[in-house]
Amino acid sequence: MLIRREIPSDIPSVQHVTTAAFTSPENPEPVETTLLARLRDDAGWIPELSLVAVTENGQVAGHVVCTRGSVGATPAVGLGPLSVHPVHQRRGTGQALVHAVLGAAEAHGEPLVALLGSPRYYGRFGFRAGTDYGVTPPDPAWGAYFQVRTLADYTPDVRGEFRYAEPFDRL
Rank of each mutant, 00 (worst) to 15 (best):
A20S: 13
A21L: 09
A21F: 07
F22K: 05
P30D: 12
V31C: 12
V31R: 13
E32K: 10
E32Q: 15
L36G: 06
L36A: 11
L39S: 05
A43Q: 05
E48G: 09
E48D: 15
L49H: 00
S50I: 02
T55W: 03
G62M: 02
H63I: 00
V65Y: 00
G69D: 03
V71P: 03
G72T: 07
A76W: 01
A76N: 08
A76V: 11
V77I: 10
G78L: 07
L79N: 00
P81A: 06
L82M: 08
V84M: 02
V84S: 02
H85S: 14
P86S: 08
V87A: 15
Q89V: 05
R91A: 06
G94L: 15
H99K: 10
A105R: 04
E106F: 01
A107M: 02
E110H: 08
V113K: 02
V113F: 03
L116G: 00
S118L: 14
R120C: 10
G123V: 08
R124A: 15
F127Y: 10
R128Q: 13
G130N: 13
Y133H: 09
G134Y: 06
P137V: 04
P140R: 10
P140M: 04
A141R: 15
A141T: 13
G143M: 10
Y145S: 11
Y145F: 11
Y145A: 13
F146I: 11
Q147T: 07
V148P: 01
Y154M: 07
Y154K: 09
Y154V: 05
T155Y: 14
P156H: 14
P156G: 05
D157W: 15
